[in-house]
Design a protein around this nucleic acid. Sequence first.
DNA 1: AGGCCGATGTCAGTTACTGACATCACTGTA
DNA 2: TACAGTGATGTCAGTAACTGACATCGGCCT
Lengths: 189, 189
Amino acid sequence: MTRWEPGAAERLAQAALDLYAERGYEQTTVAEIANRAGLTERTFFRHYADKREVLFSGASALQQPMVAAVENAPASAAPIDAVTDGLRAGAAVLEPRRPFSRTRQTVIAANPELQERELIKLARLGAALADALRRRAVPDPAASLTAAAGIAVFRVAFERWVDESESRQLTDLIEESLGELKAVTAGVR
Amino acid sequence: MTRWEPGAAERLAQAALDLYAERGYEQTTVAEIANRAGLTERTFFRHYADKREVLFSGASALQQPMVAAVENAPASAAPIDAVTDGLRAGAAVLEPRRPFSRTRQTVIAANPELQERELIKLARLGAALADALRRRAVPDPAASLTAAAGIAVFRVAFERWVDESESRQLTDLIEESLGELKAVTAGVR
DNA sequence: AGGCCGATGTCAGTTACTGACATCACTGTA
DNA sequence: TACAGTGATGTCAGTAACTGACATCGGCCT
């Protein structure tokens, strides 16, 4: 007989998302999350650094393929095209999880603390993409700027993707937003 | 005889910046800040929503001129040029406060919680610029993307500006970064 | 003179988060 | 088979951010 049910971290994440969605992030205590997962508050903090982080554990699952795609882009590819490959890789990760992304984003949109955490995750993702570009011998500030532009495109496309009315694929929205960014920075109206 | 010294909020902000710089953000308690300002902890929270916010009260002093500049850009100006006017207005606000910006940025760079707050302030600034563009009849997603590109440029230029080795003016760094972004999104290497 | 106002103080309470130590099924080894 | 070690969890006490309720009292208005 096993001493503990396996998958404690996953149970905590599920319980947290459910409770945040049901009654709101602020109205949920960590003790309640742990309780619903059949654990104690102390154990929650052994798995997640704080009450926000429980919603963001999947960040590396997104970052790794994106960075790899930038690194593996053809040597002849311009920086913006390497980053675009990265964005496509990210889209491939998210595409099958649209319902999950949607409820998660609803929860985040309802609370500034969670938005802050989301923003720093995106900023770190951008920094990782910039690093990947530097490994491709792209100098600064081009590396930082290209990565930041990519993140901006990703963000805008993602927001439209989780929007109920939109039914297009994330990849398509990324291509479209990228085209829009190029048009707009060219000074064309 | 006055009952209280005036300028409580300013005293609190100064005390907080000093203490954060001296011994670090985490190692500083709100009680210590209030004490140094000759006030109580409760009063601190009447002036600032939380321990982070005390470093960001100047955000609106930056946002207002930037938004105004976007709105007042010539009607013929393309979105990216209107945003660029906004960035120049922001640079004009920061230019005379370089030493202050530098110590403040050092403090922020040393702590993730403060970085999160900084990022959400920048995101809100970007949203305000996007709103200003929409008032200029710029449609979405062009408005969001142009604003985000502007914020990216501002961020990169600002980081270089507070860098000790750089001695150029913030405006110049913004122009340069903007040119770099245009080059990079055009796919030119 | 008297009363209202607004910034501050006082105090008690909640909750996120941390460190120290205990527990005990499982695992490998003698 | 006995037994020591490991690792995930529980227990408990403590700190500090933040909040609500109520008291205080100079200054201002009438």
